Computed example of a mutant assay.
Amino acid sequence: MLNRRQLITRSALASASLALPGFASAQAAATTTRIVVPFAAGGPIDVTARILAEAVKGTLGTVIVENRPGAGGNIGVSAVAKAAPDGLTLGIATTASHGINPWLFKQLPYDPARDFAAITQMLRVPNVLVMNAETAARLKITTLAELIAYGKANPGKLNYGSGGNGSAGHLAGELFKNQAGIFAVHIPYNGGNPAQLGLLSGQVDFNFDNLATAAANIRSGKLKALAVTTAQRSSVVPEVPTVAATLPGFEIDTWWGLIAPAGTPAETVRKLNTAFGDALKSPEVKSRFALLLAEPAPSTPEQFDDFMKRERAKYERMVKLSGAQVD
Rank of each mutant, 00 (worst) to 15 (best):
A168K: 03
A12R: 13
A93H: 09
L292H: 06
Q27E: 14
K140C: 00
N101K: 05
L175S: 09
S25P: 00
L2V: 10
A172F: 11
T31L: 05
A313T: 13
G181K: 09
P241H: 05
G87M: 11
A195D: 13
A53L: 02
L211T: 02
A79I: 03
D327N: 15
A16V: 14
A16S: 11
S78G: 12
K177T: 08
P109T: 07
T264C: 08
A26I: 09
N67G: 04
L123W: 10
A245M: 15
A275M: 01
R50M: 05
I187P: 01
G43V: 01
W255K: 03
A313L: 10
Q107H: 14
Y189N: 11
V128L: 09
F39A: 00
A26Q: 13
E66I: 12
I92S: 02
G221K: 11
V36A: 04
G99S: 11
E66Y: 02
R312S: 06
V77D: 09
D278T: 15
N127L: 15
T89F: 07
A231Y: 02
L223P: 00
R310Q: 15
V130W: 02
I259E: 02
G173H: 10
S15P: 00
D46Y: 08
K82Q: 13
E239C: 07
G323M: 12
L258G: 01
L158G: 04
G249A: 08
G87I: 08
P69E: 07
V204F: 05
P296A: 03
L158E: 06
L60T: 05
G164T: 09
T264D: 08
M1Y: 01
V56R: 07
L18Q: 10
I187A: 12
V185R: 15
T62A: 13
T274Y: 03
G72M: 07
A168E: 13
G192P: 02
F307A: 07
T268F: 03
V130G: 01
G161A: 15
R317C: 00
R233E: 07
A275G: 06
E267D: 15
A49S: 15
G163Y: 05
R34A: 03
E302P: 02
G198V: 11
A12G: 10
M131L: 11
S287T: 13
G166H: 02
L247V: 06
R124W: 08
V240F: 08
G161V: 11
A84F: 11
L258A: 00
A149T: 12
K57I: 01
G156Q: 10
L129A: 12
R219H: 09
F116L: 06
S17E: 02
L247P: 09
A214F: 02
V65H: 01
T59C: 01
A53M: 05
A153R: 13
V125G: 01
L129F: 14
L52R: 06
G173V: 10
T143Q: 07
